[in-house]
Every structure is written in structure tokens, then in C-alpha cells.
Design a protein around this nucleic acid. Structure first.
Lengths: 361, 361
DNA sequence: TATATCACTGTGGGCGCACACAGTTATAAA
DNA sequence: TTTATAACTGTGTGCGCCCACAGTGATATA
């Protein structure tokens, strides 16, 4: 009934627990004969260490660095941070310590600068949101040189190294497709749909490109309603004047506009400008359950928000590192989170979702 | 840095660990003076027991009974079962053992008969899917007499007892509203929408009533498109002849029918009959990610499936009992799971969702 | 032969907690 | 006063594991 213990293994193999321990941890100093014997018994009885006992005895400390954009610049990053904190709580009693590093997204070279500080300390693993590809790549190279395993969240940047354990995030292409399908369902013949990137350097942001591609591809395969797709970029969100100018321009350019697909969490910046300036009614699809966006949901303005599960991204990212370190588990290189379709009617259920787990403390 | 231990508390309170232990577990035999002192120190330092040490030391065994409909009758119940199994894995090293009891839904009094078998053994808690209200109520009464705490999943039956810890499931009313909103988005002026209950004794199934009510209430508050709502029930799903007859009748009755809302997971039984017999194109909304339903999603037929998160229901239900027993945690009486809107484009992400947790073994 | 070195193996303490049991004091009864 | 009883309080053991350290032989060196 009760699972097999180290001592049991030792007895069955005719050695002491110390020897079994040495075999399990590859500490050496074990004769080939015994080593083999122990390995056999270990296998035969499918020995699984008792993690509670291990955790108790093992005073080893594992340190993880987490590098994400500051939530003071973009409130979106509060959510992954929450997930990281939750994971921290769940694993801290196994001797894990997470240090947070924030970089200013938008401030030139800040990802790189803050990232390099990490290497001034000894870390066993790194969680990173590699928003800026070029700078992140330098960090990755450094990790690989120092043999530090890492997990990417939110943004995927391909690396060949074994130290790149996993990407945790959304499937951007699919989310674009999904947005298109929703609009297709609720749009009249001959209408125009606008893809709106509210970021600089779109060409350098793989996930935005993917979303647009998915959106376009959907209508490439089926477009019975003869819907017209357009695309614009704009990033001076803080200036009301410029926003207004941009929106009037966009509306003038697209007289039959019926829907706007904003590819980031920044729909809330500009939705009112569209509503105020448009003569006809518009549908909106944006991303992420920020308070700012949710307000518009309850106002019946934005029809759909696509939830990228950012909190889960942080949580899963850390847990992936934990499982790698503790269990040496094999891990999927890509861990896609669900693409939740959120409307006024079901938003509440996505807000304070619990992670019911075995709480250790 | 490292969290505070029993011994620390003992020292600070000027007593031995035994006394602190007695206070914590309310074992009595502690003078009022010391009891208060220890309680103060406990509070001041926010003592949290180390669950690893506790788990190691505590050889106590907890037994949980789980009573759900057999998945041989309705494949839906495979999903909650999966969740229960997963939870079992996560907590078995804390000395928890789950025994499964299956009853035949539809077989008269079987819930009651199988349920009463549970009381032939000693259980610390019960998880139950109380599909049949009258029979389940007798089980609840027995639990209350024997002081066995229980959690309901899937179906909610209100009880005043403190032993009724929580209901884990969907908010049926909201899911009805959500279905209405989706149809509203994609429906033309003057169309008809049909609410379809594919069950017997609808009047006795609270969750079906709730779904219908939510659906109707949505259009009560806003019906700019002047959409007509109708309702039908049908349950002879195995007979092709009767299905055909029913569907022709339904279509004839509703010439402007554009959408069908099936309130259970049984959309797959009847969707083809509708498609084959209808001259115009129809939209469908149903429940649950059964393989049978998913096939239709990928065929572009059923537009939306609402996911009730049945696997999570099983998982959360067990974890709720676990947390109650181990942490004596206060628990929300109602734990609503998200109402996921599932389309062809995001279905895959809901299929094999992981629960990343601290795996103890 | 005595001694140092090496390769290996077993032993024991301790992680934080639960619980049985032994020890201590106060109170009531003889 | 002595004894029995009750009301406390402290001590010690073990859960399964990790790891430092103390052995034990065998072989090489002085």
C-alpha cells in the first residue's frame, strides 16, 4: 500500500541506504557491481522518492530569476506577475526562491541592461518575457554559455539550445483566426474589418504579425460575405489630439467599417475615440482582461476580449522550471494556453480564478 | 528567511513544543494562561505548519468516497472522472484514498442504492454529483446524521447543513445568457431561435430551467432585432424515425429558424437531422467537449460549444474536500467554473489542459 | 613491515511535526 | 499527613530522506 522507501530498496539490494543514495544522485564512489544491483532494484520496484521527506531533509536552495517588463509602464504585466507570485508561494517550501527583475519596455536596451544584472548572481534557472528579440537573444546566449536553463513566456523566440526548456503562451496565429471567425459570424455582407496594431515596430513583434496572419488567412479560405480587410498601426496613445486625428482618418478611409480588431491589450486607449466619432455601430475585439478593458465590456461596447491567460503564463512558466529542476521532467517545448473568448456574460468567471493545488504552507 | 517553526513558537511562548502542539490541535489539557499565550505568539508570527513535515509525521489516512453517474451510460462522466483521478494523484501522498462509486443514471433508485453502500465503510468525506434530487437528498441526510462533509459537483441542490461544504459547477443561468448574446451577435432581424431540451423531466432539472431562463432574460432586456424565441423538448434520441419526425415538425413550426440552443451535451445526437432537413443555414450552440460534439465543430457545423469544465469540476471538488480536511480552510459555498466559449479555432487548447501543481510523487 | 592512499560502504544526526508516554504539580479524598 | 486523582507539561521517537563523517579493506609507497 504505502510506497517503497529508500530503506526498502537498500535491504532488497543488500546494501545500505547511503549506497542507494549515492546511486540515485550519481555521487560516485559506488562499485559497478552494487551500482547495477541497486539500479535494478530501483527499476523493479519503481522507486519514487517521497518529496515531502526530500523537501524536509534537503536544505538546498534553488534560485530562479524572473525577467519581465515593468507593470508601471504597462499594467498588463501585473497579471503574469501575479502568477509568478502564486507559483512562488507553492514552491518556496521546496527551497525555491524567485528574484524579480523588471525592465522598462520601450526604454532602449533596458531589457539587456537589467537582464545582464542577473548574471552577477548565481541562478539555477531563468524565466523571461523576451519582448525585444535582439536584446533577449544576447541574454539567451549568456544563459547557454553559463548552462542556465530558461523558459520564455508571452513572446516566443526560437532557440536551438537544450537550455531553452519551453515557451509558455498563446498561439497568436490561432487567436487571430478566432477573432476573424467571430467577426465573420456577426458581420454583414460587404463590411470592412480593421486590424489595428497599437504598437511601434510591428515588424519586430512576431506575435502581432502572427495574429494578423491568422486573421487574414481565415478570410482567405472563406469569405462568402465579401468582407474587406484593412490594417493600420498607431502608437501615440497618450496624445488625445493624435488619437483623434488618427481615428477620424481611419473612419474616413473605411466608410463601411463595422469591426475593429486590436491586436494587443490596448483597446481601452482608443475605443472611446472610435465610438464617439463613428456614425454607425462598431464591434470590437481586443485582448486581455485588464480593468480598463473590462469596463468597456460591461458598457456593452467592446463585444469580445480574448484572454491570453497571462496569469497562467507566469504560473506555468515558473512551475515548468520547478518541475525541471525537481523532477528533471521532460517538457513540451511549446505550452499553449487556452484562448478564452470573454464577453460581459462570462467575464467574472475568468477574473479571480483559483489554482487549487496542494498548498505547501 | 526560513519560516517559523513549532519549536520557535514554543521558545517564544516559554513552553514546550508539546504544549504548542496541543493548542494547535485543540487537544485540551492546556492551562488557560498558556493557551492564550501560545495563541498570541502563533498569531503574532503568523505560524504556518510545514506541510511536508506534517505529511511525513502524520501517518493518518483519509478516505473519500466519490459518487457519480457511470460513464458507460453517458460518456460525459468520463471527464469529471479524469479530474477526480488527477486530484487523487496529487493528494495520495498526504494519506488520501479515494473510492469511486458509479450509479446508473436512468436506472430507478440506483443513485440511492449505490449511495447507501458508501455508509457501510468509514469515510471522511463525500464527493457527489446529485443528478436526481430526491434520491440525493436522502444521501445528504445520512451524511448529516453521520457528520460526513460533502461537496456537490455538476448539479446544485441546496442544503442548510454545515456539512454541505460547497457546490462546484457552472452558473447555468449565465451560460444561457451567454448563448443568447452569441446568437444575438450573429442573427438577422426577425429570425427565430429555438431552445431545445434533449432530456426527460425538464421540470425536475434545475440547471436546464436556469439555462432557458438566462437565455430568455437576455432577449427580454434587449431585442433590437426583434428575434423570436421558442422552446421544445425531446428525448427519444436513439430512434432515428422519431428524431426525423420531431425535426421536420420543429422546422415546419419555425420557418424563420436560424439558430438552435441545445441545453445539454447531446447536440451531437440531433444536429445532422437538422442540417439535412433544413433548407436554410442554421447555427448551433451546445454544451461540452465530447468527441461526438467536437467532430461537428471541425465540420464547421456547430458554431459554438460551451465548455462546462467537467474535468475541473471533479478536480476542484476533490481538492475542496482535501483543503477542508487538511487546512480546515473556509470554503466558498459556490465555486463557479468559467464558461468557456469553444469554437473550431480554440477547441484544441481546451482538450488536454494540464494542471501544473506541486506533484508530491 | 609499517604507513599512506584510495575506493568504497555504513552510520548517525537532523529537517519540522505528531503523538505516545513519562514526569510534574495542584487538588480532592482518605 | 498520606494517597489517589486529575490537570497539566515536557521529552523522546520516528516519518523518509540527505549528507557529513566514520569506518573498512585493498593497494601502493616508504
Amino acid at each position: 500500500m504505502t510506497s517503497i522507501s529508500l530503506k526498502d530498496i537498500a535491504k532488497k539490494a543488500g546494501v545500505s541506504v547511503g549506497t542507494v543514495d549515492r546511486v540515485i544522485h550519481n555521487r560516485g564512489n559506488v562499485s559497478a557491481k552494487f551500482r547495477e544491483k541497486v539500479l535494478d532494484v530501483l527499476n523493479e520496484f519503481e522507486y519514487k522518492p517521497n518529496l515531502m521527506a526530500r523537501g524536509l531533509a534537503n536544505k538546498k536552495n534553488y534560485r530562479i530569476a524572473a525577467l519581465i517588463p515593468s507593470h508601471e509602464v504597462d499594467p498588463f504585466w501585473k497579471l503574469p506577475l501575479q502568477g509568478i507570485r502564486k507559483a512562488d508561494n507553492h514552491i518556496k517550501n521546496f527551497g525555491f526562491k524567485i528574484d524579480l527583475y523588471y525592465y522598462q519596455d520601450g526604454l532602449d536596451k533596458d531589457l539587456l541592461k537589467v537582464g545582464m544584472q542577473i548574471f552577477e548572481h548565481e541562478y539555477h534557472a531563468l524565466l523571461i518575457a523576451p519582448v525585444i528579440k535582439d536584446e533577449a537573444s544576447i541574454i539567451f546566449t549568456e544563459c547557454e554559455k553559463r548552462q542556465i536553463p530558461y523558459v520564455q513566456i508571452n513572446t516566443f523566440i526560437n532557440r536551438k539550445s537544450d537550455l531553452f526548456l519551453s515557451f509558455v503562451g498563446q498561439d497568436s496565429y490561432c487567436s487571430g483566426k478566432l477573432a476573424a471567425k467571430l467577426f465573420d459570424f456577426g458581420t454583414q455582407d460587404g463590411d470592412t474589418l480593421l486590424i489595428l496594431h497599437l504598437e511601434r515596430e510591428v515588424y519586430n513583434s512576431e506575435h502581432l504579425i502572427q495574429k494578423e496572419q491568422g486573421f487574414r488567412d481565415y478570410f482567405k479560405t472563406k469569405n462568402k460575405k465579401n468582407i474587406h480587410i484593412s490594417q493600420l498601426s498607431f502608437s501615440d496613445l497618450e496624445s488625445e489630439e493624435k488619437r483623434q486625428a488618427f481615428v477620424s482618418y481611419a473612419l474616413k478611409q473605411h466608410p463601411k467599417l463595422s469591426g475593429v480588431f486590436v491586436t494587443t491589450s490596448k483597446l481601452h486607449y482608443i475605443i472611446n475615440d472610435f465610438i464617439d466619432n463613428s456614425t454607425s455601430s462598431l464591434n470590437f475585439i481586443g485582448f486581455d482582461l485588464l480593468d480598463e478593458n473590462l469596463n468597456h465590456l460591461s458598457n456593452d461596447n467592446a463585444l469580445f476580449l480574448i484572454n491570453q491567460n497571462p496569469t497562467q503564463q507566469g504560473y506555468l512558466g515558473i512551475m515548468t522550471l520547478f518541475n525541471h529542476i525537481i523532477h528533471n521532467a521532460t517538457i513540451e517545448k511549446t505550452q499553449h494556453l487556452p484562448i478564452d473568448v470573454v464577453m460581459k456574460e462570462n467575464a467574472a468567471f475568468y477574473m479571480h480564478r483559483q489554482n487549487h493545488v496542494v498548498e505547501v504552507n
